[in-house]
Structures are given as C-alpha cells and as structure tokens.
C-alpha cells in the first residue's frame, strides 16, 4: 500500500474508534437516564475526557497530513471531511455527557407517562440508528446510505416539534414533576441537535465521495438530488 494510503487509513481508523466511543457514550447515557443509574452517569461524564483526547489527536493528525502530503482531489476531500466529522462527533460526545449529568441528578426513574407521551425513547433510538448508519456509510464509502441517513432526520424533527405542547400539558397535570419534565424537554432538544449533527456528518460523507456540497440546500432540493444521484464517484 502506498505511504499516503497507509496514513489515510490510519486517520480513518482513528476516526472510527472515536465514533465507537461516542456511540457507546450515547448508549450509556440513555441507559443511565432510563434507570436513574448515577454510577453509570458518572462514568459517562468521566469518559468524555477520552472523547476530547480523540478530538485533539485527530485534529493534529489532519494538520500533519496537510503539511506533509499536500493532498488534492479525493484525498483532500477526505481530510477536510474527517476534520468536520471529528468536530461533530466531539459535540455529540458533549451531548451524551449532558444527558448523563441530567441522569446523575435523578432520584428515581422518570415517570412512564412522561416517557411515553413525549416519545423520547423512540427518538433516542432513531438518533442512535442514524448515528450507527452514518458510521457504516463513512466506513464503506457509501453516499447512498448517507443520503438515507439525512432523510431519516425527519423522524426526530417531528417528535421534537410536538414536544413543547406535550410537556406543557404534562406539567399542568403534574406540577410536582415540573423539574423532571423541563429536564426531559432539554434532552429532546439535545437529541434533535444530534440529528442535525449526524446530518452534517452524512453531508461530509457525500462531499468526500461525490465532490458535491449539499449542506444548506433546502430539504426539497436535498431530497431531489438524493433520488437522482446514485453513488457517482471519481
């Protein structure tokens, strides 16, 4: 394998390791929230330092790669994509930490009615599925799957849009649980943000493989182009 490919593989592998760690953080954060497990929450908070270390390491690897290999074309796009994916993964890691901080303060598991009406559990599942699929899209150089990931963000947005009124009603009915309800609303917002960040990552996968910039396009145009272009690459 040429030297340049060995270095690029190293970079991709490091990013995929970070991806695994952040996925684990999201899963553990969910577990801690659902079971009010303060110990697990504490571990998630502590482990965020490791995510930050990955962030710094990957930034440094990209900097070195630019300086030593002056990449062009697909190589350049890959390193630019890795830089941006890294930044998004680090923020998703922060979100997992934020959820764990909320879970740490819980005395008992959240009210089942609140969980069911807000649909926070399926929302969390959908965010995790997007996250996992996007990792596969990056690992397998699959822009078609990346486009599917972008489409699935709609599910999260739909749940998010309804959450305000649902939580308001719940608080009116259960004024003694306003604290929990507000915290859960903030988690729903965080999960909506995770959907956006995974969308950003998926856009970088498409940029890397197809040399196409699709960010900031309207949803309509995105949908149109994801139907039209089937994995063209050079």
């Amino acid at each position: 394998m040429p030297h340049i490919d060995i270095e690029l593989e190293r970079l991709k592998t490091k990013l995929l390791e970070m991806w695994d760690l952040v996925e684990y953080q999201l899963q553990a954060g969910r577990e801690a929230m659902m079971t009010a497990d303060a110990e697990l929450a504490k571990q998630v908070i502590k482990r965020d330092r490791k995510v930050n270390q990955f962030d710094v390491k990957i930034d440094r690897m990209c900097e070195n790669f630019f300086a030593l290999f002056t990449p062009v074309a697909v190589d350049l796009r890959l390193v630019l994509a890795v830089l941006k994916i890294n930044a998004n993964l680090e923020r998703i890691g922060d979100t997992a930490e934020g959820i764990a901080r909320f879970a740490q303060k819980l005395d008992e598991p959240l009210d089942q009615e609140l969980l069911e009406t807000t649909k926070v559990v399926p929302m969390y599942e959908a965010a995790l599925a997007m996250f996992t699929d996007c990792r596969i899209a990056f690992k397998n150089n699959d822009p078609v799957l990346a486009k599917e990931v972008i489409k699935s963000d709609k599910v999260l947005n739909k749940i998010y849009r309804k959450s305000d009124s649902i939580v308001t009603k719940y608080m009116q009915k259960n004024p003694e649980k306003i604290g929990d309800a507000l915290a859960l609303l903030s988690i729903i917002k965080k999960l909506e943000r995770v959907g956006d960040q995974v969308t950003n990552i998926a856009e970088e996968v498409i940029f890397y493989r197809e040399a196409k910039v699709i960010k900031h396009r309207s949803d309509k145009k995105k949908k149109k182009s994801s139907g039209k272009d089937k994995g063209k690459e050079v």
Partner: peptide, 17 residues
C-alpha cells in the same frame, strides 16, 4: 482539476497513485 477531477486517470496522477 485539483479538487474534483472527472477522469479517474487524472485523479490517480495528481494524487500520486
């Protein structure tokens, strides 16, 4: 040419492969 060449031969050449 240096960001998104159309032909695979161009890409292989400019990326040193």
């Amino acid at each position: 040419m240096f960001t998104s060449p159309k032909d695979e031969r161009t890409q292989n050449y400019i990326t040193g492969r």
